[in-house]
């Protein structure tokens, strides 16, 4: 036997670690460059483009209304879990729960609301956007768009970008409120913290609100850019759509974790 042609392996499991590391690093650099390029083109078309009226509203509906139940559910749970866990933790040193509410409010505003909400939106919205755009790519609808002299970035990315920018903030604010409410209930039921003791916003200052809103806005921008990047890069039928959707969830989530770190660290260092 012996095939005359090389047989490329579809999956490289046992690459040399250093080679692999180098490849990953190169991929990362070119990936970041592609993301920045897409972001800049999106900004350009935001001001110069000619997409159809209503496209942004449609996306806002998709991101806002359709994601709200999922986000509300998960945030309601996370509110209960976090208050419970932090009260348990506090109980090991001083069983005084009077400040649980105040600390929770601060943490929710500057960290948990935006980030957990952002991660959930990355999952739900990111996967949705990538699945849609990737399907359009592999069924050659994007090529059809190009033939109509319409830029896919203008027609597909910009509406999603604008809608996400607005709706991410709205949805995160609303669902954080819900998480606060479920947290208060947990404190009341499990640790007998009265509502008037729990509801204490004395620790929430301007810096916390600014940090939280900045994070929400940054996530709102990052999710559509990451997801559409993955979606538009899809190739190869149904397997390609699957890969693109998976990549979008991973990339959006990772973007949120990294953005969160940088915003949190900057806020900490400037003393906000």
């Amino acid at each position: 036997m012996g095939s005359p042609l090389e047989t490329p392996q579809p999956l490289v499991l046992h690459e040399r670690p250093l080679v692999k590391l180098g490849r990953v690093a190169l991929d990362a650099v070119s990936g970041v460059r592609a993301l920045v390029s897409l972001f800049l083109r999106t900004l350009w078309f935001t001001f110069r483009g000619s997409r159809p009226k209503g496209a942004t509203a449609l996306q806002a509906f998709e991101i806002g209304n359709r994601s709200a139940p999922f986000l509300a559910l998960t945030m309601a749970f996370i509110g209960m879990i976090l208050v419970y866990q932090s009260a348990v933790q506090l109980g090991r040193i001083v069983p005084d729960y009077s400040m649980v509410g105040a600390n929770y409010a601060e943490l929710l505003v500057r960290e948990l609301g935006p980030t957990i909400g952002g991660l959930m939106l990355a999952t739900r919205v990111g996967a949705g956007m990538a699945a849609e755009t990737a399907s359009m790519v592999v069924t050659e609808q994007v090529d059809a768009l190009r033939l109509c002299a319409a830029d896919p970035v203008d027609f597909l990315v910009v509406p999603r970008f604008l809608a996400s920018l607005v709706m991410t903030v709205v949805v995160i604010v609303l669902c954080s409120g819900l998480a606060y409410a479920t947290g208060a209930l947990t404190a009341l039921v499990a640790f007998d913290v009265r509502l008037d003791v729990f509801v204490n916003l004395s620790l929430v200052d301007f810096g916390d609100v600014a940090t939280g809103l900045t994070k929400s806005l940054a996530y709102g921008a990052a999710i559509p850019i990451c997801s559409c990047h993955c979606g538009l890069a899809a190739e190869g039928g149904s397997a390609g759509v699957g890969r693109a959707t998976t990549a979008a969830v991973v990339l959006s989530s990772l973007a949120i974790i990294v953005i969160n770190f940088f915003i949190s660290a900057s806020a900490f260092l400037v003393g906000l």
Partner: peptide, 25 residues
């Protein structure tokens, strides 16, 4: 077809996340 795969992936991650939070609680 191909769009169906995308929809499935989305449904799967959404259901997983919901399940994770509910179980965590």
């Amino acid at each position: 077809g191909a769009p169906g795969v995308g929809r499935s992936v989305k449904a799967s991650v959404v259901a997983s996340a919901t399940g994770i939070f509910a179980l965590d609680y």
